[in-house]
Amino acid sequence: METLKCSGLGKRYGSTRVFENLNLELEGGHIVGLLGPNGSGKTTLIKLCCGLLTPDAGEIKIGGEKIGPKSKAITSYLPERMALAEWMTAAQAMDYYADFFEDFSRSSATEMIHSLGLDENQSIKTMSKGTKEKLQLILTMSRKAKLYLLDEPIGGVDPATRDYILNTIINNYNPEATVLISTHLISDVEQVLDQVIFLREGKIILQSDVDDLRMERGKSIDEIFREEFRC
């Protein structure tokens, strides 16, 4: 069974069409890059998959479940911005995740927090932007989910933090799960991807295995992306 299946998906923002009849299927056990320029629909697709938006047409199934509490229980979502309450401490944020997500592993979250040298009792509002992003990623990756939706996980952070984030993703995701990473910083994520999806104006223009694509075109994914989306 597919981890993620979008059938005939349609979404509009007022008079602007984002998706029309989008079909997508992703199998488990892969890290997939959702690549496209700004406004191509990457974030909208992720928001639809995690239930923040409702499609106007078609349907999405995650692990065979329509979007709802059951699909959300097996989906681990990293939003593009800080979603944790600033007044919480790292420990309180872990309590929050442990209460709502049965697949949350407190021990692995604690281990990663300690390895970062973070104090569990430090409040989030006193943390730097990079540390907040790391904490949010740790909480997301400490779940044994079937689908990880990571929206721009390396956007706006320094190169060292970028490496930390990518290592955390590779070392902690459930091997049977699908990790969907939305980004336009292709050269940084290319090394960790198994598959890529190129999205342009709400349409999938390319979906392929990364190694096959590199072999076929004799170029890196970053170069292929620049070629496909040349202005």
């Binding site: 239930g51 923040l52 939003p79 944790l84 309450a85």
Partner: peptide, 18 residues
Amino acid sequence: KKNILGSEGYLTMSLPVN
């Protein structure tokens, strides 16, 4: 406003609840 319509809404509305 903060917990549903603000940035916290990203987490609140993706919890496995209705």
